[in-house]
Design a protein around this nucleic acid. Structure first.
Lengths: 339, 339
DNA sequence: GTTACTCATGGCACCGATAACATACGCTCA
DNA sequence: TGAGCGTATGTTATCGGTGCCATGAGTAAC
């Protein structure tokens, strides 16, 4: 390089201290808002920070304090891009507010080895906590080791050593969806669930089952998708071949898109022939054809609540507010023809 | 706590060194894959790592080496959750492969102040580089300062001091989409663009304009949305009121959903009355009704390429492969009635 | 056989903040 | 008046790697 001025190192606390005429320790205290700092001193420090263009060095802080002020977020690459995106935003917002940064690790598939590697990588990065937004299909000793050392919140109800679980009542979502169809007069409600590894999927299915039980209806065998619209399409083709199906509860909006398409291609109209209700209420649910009746989930708040739980640990008021679900009734559901 | 053994500190390189019977420096070299380490020594070191349960401390590394092996990703909370999600995955995958972690910062809106804060926050975290996936609506001195010090790749073509630009030819996308409609026999093509602050939006509009110019068609005034399905719906309502519209190029799939809905509600059928083509090819594009003809963008590779460019700086082969666009022809476009 | 050079390894200072401890000052109260 | 205490500030060691330089062994070249 031919630059005239050599690229000098970033100013450090010592530089600020010299400029402000105090010790580095006082600068540290002033910047962290320690109570025992004179107001006038603090002002001088802040002025010096501006003057020398000081930028905080979080690596040094992490090294000396042992805390990185970073949390690790584990996501699944496939499956539900809307929720992933919204959860990420919620996590990041809540973390940011608490002065934490967010480090992400995406695993390509639900594989224990990949999970171990992801957690390991984040642990190496020195995260202070984990938010795990994918199911832990199996908890290996290695995973237990890591989550025992580092506070963890799981979002889907998986349990591992020392992890807190943010319990959302997915069963309720399944119940609300199914009851809506029964209330419309449907005699039977079919179900296309998410992958069985996901506790969310299991809980929604359970809610469906319970609701049918309570109504004295024998539940038909559930079909299983993988959250993707393609899988919904495939399962929808099966549904389309079964006569007398008038109502289907699909475990996720994106799958529901595929189901509706499959039904339409087979000449079954939604909602005239078959009513469809699902869960999520993604942004496109209101704009597709027909607009989707769906149980709303607030993924953003879900993610934010996970961080609150992780950092503050106040289970109580978190769970209450996040757990609520609400039904957005649109045009993909209606009374059965002969109902 | 009543634990028998006090929670001791994590093992460090010194511990590994002692166990392996070498110096800490040799451990460091062995772990970083330095060429000048005896194979046998390396084996001993790796065994010792296993034995003592050593975990790398990246804060220490960052402090002493001055590089954090972390890159910062700036996203916009609203607007295109599919692309956000896919870009994030691509960035994370490419970064992970190169041994880098990803730190995210989401800005709630396209606001210069928020952008400054996001960059500043990531800079404080000590990121080695930025991938900025939102438009820089205005480049303030503060933003310039930060991006001058830290390598930056912008994804939408915004320019700022020292930033590399990953140039995807969005104009080509606009051209391909528009030409498809002309080829089908449409005499006129309307356009609903993205927000003018986005270079992507401007380029796609330019492509549309050029294509019409080349065909000797006078372009109608473009309408403008904000990428959201709701905005598509609003603009679609306007389009629906204009007689003789037979073809619309919508700048994004999510907006196209809203446009189609608005047209349908006004009794205009897609594609029989109006053909719709858009850009992105999100997962749901194939499953909505009617299935959407759209120009495919590979956001995942886009994100990955940004990281490659940032870390390796080999512009050449990156641009070529990513820039390509391809049209997915589905059922939302057809010949005009009297065409 | 000395020089020269490579390879494998060790020693030590240092990155920049913070924890822990020390100090200085001012004030209250016996 | 001096013990006792709280507040504001300074001093020093330390966190755990890495950069730089030194060292010794082995080997090729003259």
């Amino acid at each position: 390089m031919t630059e005239g001025t050599a690229r000098t190192r970033q100013p450090s606390m010592t530089d600020v201290a010299r400029t402000a005429g105090v010790s580095a320790q006082t600068v540290s205290r002033a910047l962290r808002g320690s109570p025992n700092v004179n107001a006038e001193t603090k002002r001088r420090v802040l002025a010096a920070v501006e003057q020398v263009g000081y930028r905080f060095n979080s690596a040094a802080r992490a090294l000396s304090s042992g805390r990185s002020h970073t949390i690790g977020l584990v996501l699944l690459a496939s499956g539900g891009y809307y929720s992933r995106s919204a959860v990420t935003a919620g996590v990041e917002a809540a973390a940011g507010e608490a002065g934490y940064a967010v480090n992400i690790a995406t695993i390509a598939a639900l594989d224990t080895g990949l999970m171990e590697r992801a957690l390991s990588k984040l642990a190496d990065q020195g995260v202070d906590g984990f938010v795990i937004a994918v199911p832990l299909i199996s908890v290996t000793p290695k995973i237990e080791d890591i989550t025992r050392d580092i506070p963890t919140v799981t979002l889907d109800g998986s349990r591992t050593a020392g992890a807190r679980v943010l319990g959302i009542d997915q069963q309720e979502a399944g119940r609300v969806a199914t009851q809506h169809l029964l209330d419309l007069g449907h005699r039977q409600v079919w179900h296309i669930s998410g992958p069985d590894e996901w506790i969310e999927a299991r809980q929604r299915r359970q809610g469906w089952q319970e609701c049918l039980d309570a109504a004295g209806v024998e539940a038909p065998p559930p079909l299983e998708g993988d959250w993707s619209p393609d899988s919904g399409y495939r399962q929808g083709q099966i549904i389309a071949m079964i006569p007398d199906v008038t109502a289907v509860f699909v475990a996720g909006d994106e799958m529901a898109f595929g189901v509706i398409r499959a039904l339409r291609e087979r000449g079954r109209s939604v909602p005239d022939d078959v009513s469809i209700v699902s869960v999520d209420d993604i942004a496109l649910a209101a704009h597709c054809f027909p607009p989707l009746t769906t149980v709303r989930q607030d993924f953003y708040r879900y993610g934010a609540a996970a961080v609150d739980l992780l950092l503050r640990g106040d289970d109580a008021d978190v769970d209450e507010s996040v757990a609520s679900v609400s039904l957005s009734v649109r045009e993909s559901t209606t009374r059965p023809r002969s109902g």
